[in-house]
């Protein structure tokens, strides 16, 4: 499989994984391992002095490309603040930009996302913005220097699959940066479908972390993504209206 290049970095796995909601740090670590993912996302929160989050210790920062997100940000200012803090905490200048003021559907605010992206790119961040599947916005984000665009398939954690299919197709057709379908995928087949639409990668969290067996589901997503990538590289045949026999049409018995 051809590697994916993001901001000059070669990424072999087309499956990115979010580290939230796993039943335990051990299960998360095993799921990450089995998934073959190289990019894993994390969130930034106030340290709880009495009960520190154990997830952090289970993520090997040397092994994975850790992608801090700005989840919780309600406007550009908060997102920029979170990105700066994440960089100060880790030295990592990649950021998954998320600005989600709407608490019900967690839909991203396009205006604040674009505003924050512009500021962060100028500050030297590699910005991967979570966005609605809006082809015009995707171009705007690309124009201000984002390293990828990350359109949603459906609301975060909803497991509803590619509800935005037609618009993701247009984004793929027009994009000059990698397209990562993020949010709303529930089944391995949804991930395959995203790749078959032309997306370069998918980001999955809840579908794996909240599955009955997260480790098995991580493997299922890995296989689904790899199989779709191989299929696309192999050059699929065109759809036809009518049948075309796959057995020879000569030499029949009388």
């Amino acid at each position: 499989m051809k590697p994916l290049i993001i901001a000059g970095k070669e990424i072999k796995s087309r499956l990115f994984i979010g580290t939230g909601k796993f039943p335990s740090p051990e299960i998360m670590a095993e799921a990450l391992e089995v998934s073959g993912a190289e990019i894993v996302t994390v969130a930034l929160r106030r340290v709880s002095f009495d009960s520190p989050d154990p997830t952090l210790k289970a993520i090997d920062f040397d092994k994975y490309i850790v992608l801090p997100n700005t989840s919780g940000a309600k406007d550009a200012e908060e997102a920029v603040r979170l990105a700066r803090l994440a960089r100060a905490a880790s030295g990592i200048n990649w950021v998954k930009l998320e600005v989600t003021p709407d608490p019900v559907y967690l839909l991203p605010d396009p205006y604040e996302t674009l505003k924050a992206a512009e500021i962060l790119v100028k500050e030297g961040f590699v910005v991967l913005p979570y966005m609605h599947a809006d082809p015009v916005l995707a171009k705007r984000l690309e124009d201000v220097g984002c390293a990828t665009v990350m359109p949603l398939a459906a609301p975060i954690g909803s497991a509803r699959g590619l509800k935005t299919e037609e618009f993701i197709k247009i984004i793929v057709e027009q994009a000059n940066v990698p397209v990562v379908v993020d949010a709303g995928l529930g089944l391995p087949s949804h991930a395959s479908k995203a790749i078959e639409l032309g997306a370069d990668a998918v980001l999955v969290n809840t579908a794996i972390a909240s599955a009955e067996d997260p480790v098995k589901m991580a493997k299922a997503f890995k296989l689904a993504v790899e199989s779709a990538i191989l299929g696309m590289e192999a050059g699929p045949i065109e759809e036809q209206e009518k049948a075309s026999a796959s057995s020879p049409l000569t030499g029949f018995l009388d």
């Binding site: 979010g18 580290t19 939230g20 909601k21 796993f22 998360m28 996302t41 994390v42 969130a43 930034l44 929160r45 106030r46 340290v47 520190p52 989050d53 997830t55 952090l56 993520i59 850790v66 801090p68 997100n69 989840s71 803090l85 994440a86 905490a89 880790s90 975060i156 949010a183 980001l203 969290n205 809840t206």
Partner: peptide
């Protein structure tokens, strides 16, 4: 003072 660090998240 704010003291922040990473937690699991998507």
């Amino acid at each position: 003072v704010e003291v922040v660090s990473f937690v699991g998240g998507g």
